[in-house]
């Protein structure tokens, strides 16, 4: 199974809009909550000195200093990119790690996983975390247990993180279909891959922040007249159209 499929019917994934993400962490805990109730995501020392648990989605915050102009803060969610050439899959000795032919989702079969950690080493994006209680590897499932779930209302068949994102910065869809909303977004906004030279060919795309901090434009606000010369009365007449 650790052979990557040569072709997947769909390429399901996320387009994440860095121009819109406010870094609220909502997607982080929504993901935790959903996956905790479905598969379990343990926490160690939850009320102690060093609480630590498995999460499948993490939101970073970077500071970017352009050559000219003010520094910026850009929030950056990070979860599995469901790579087409996922290096995490072929390294797996047990076949627990696999990429689905039908939709390209990369999953871990927890029943087969030995928790060797090699797939996490192979992933450049830090998308895999070993659950310390279960001893098996956890990763974003693209909410495979939601997106086809017949027990959920149609409109809820999308990833938990997408459903919860208050700003709508996360978009879910099929990148194999050039007409899908995500494909069109990526085309329109110049969506890009992370660390493309590693040739992992991520499915998830990041939409770059729009250009910030407009240069000062010549003011369209020409004063009506020289107030010093005409005084308030002159200004009033001018403004009120009396002259």
């Amino acid at each position: 199974m650790t052979q990557l499929p040569s072709h997947t019917d769909k390429k399901l994934g996320l387009a994440i809009d860095l121009d819109t993400c406010v870094g609220c962490q909502a997607c982080v805990t929504a993901c935790k909550g959903w996956n905790d109730q479905s598969h379990g995501l343990s926490d160690q020392d939850p009320y102690g000195a060093e609480p630590s648990g498995a999460f499948l989605n993490r939101v970073h915050s970077y500071q970017v200093e352009p050559e000219a102009g003010a520094a910026q803060i850009i929030n950056f969610p990070r979860s599995c990119l469901h790579c087409e050439d996922a290096p995490c899959v072929p390294v797996c000795p047990t076949g627990a790690s696999y990429k689905r032919v039908e939709d390209g989702i990369v999953l871990v079969n927890e029943d087969a996983c030995i928790g060797c950690g090699l797939c996490a080493w192979a992933c450049p994006y830090g998308a895999r975390e070993l659950d310390q209680a279960a001893g098996v590897m956890k990763k974003c499932t693209l909410c495979v247990d939601r997106i086809y779930n017949e027990n959920l209302p149609e409109e809820d068949r999308e990833p938990a993180c997408v459903r919860t994102c208050p700003t709508g910065a996360r978009h879910f869809g099929d990148f194999a279909d050039p007409d899908s909303a995500v494909s069109r977004l990526v085309a329109a906004r110049g969506g890009y891959d992370l660390m493309p030279d590693l040739k992992t060919r991520p499915t998830n795309k990041y939409l770059p922040p729009r250009k910030k901090d407009r240069p000062q434009e010549a003011s369209v606000l020409a004063p009506l007249l020289d107030i010093k010369a005409t005084g308030l009365a002159g200004w009033l007449d001018k403004v009120l159209g009396k002259i």
């Binding site: 962490q25 909502a26 805990t29 929504a30 909550g33 409109e155 459903r163």
Partner: peptide
């Protein structure tokens, strides 16, 4: 066992923040 946003609700229209989902 799980908390999610109510889509019909006028305030949040289905979304939750990090706290609400915890």
């Amino acid at each position: 066992s799980y908390i999610e946003g109510n889509r019909d609700h006028p305030v949040n229209k289905g979304v939750l923040c990090a706290k609400g989902a915890s």
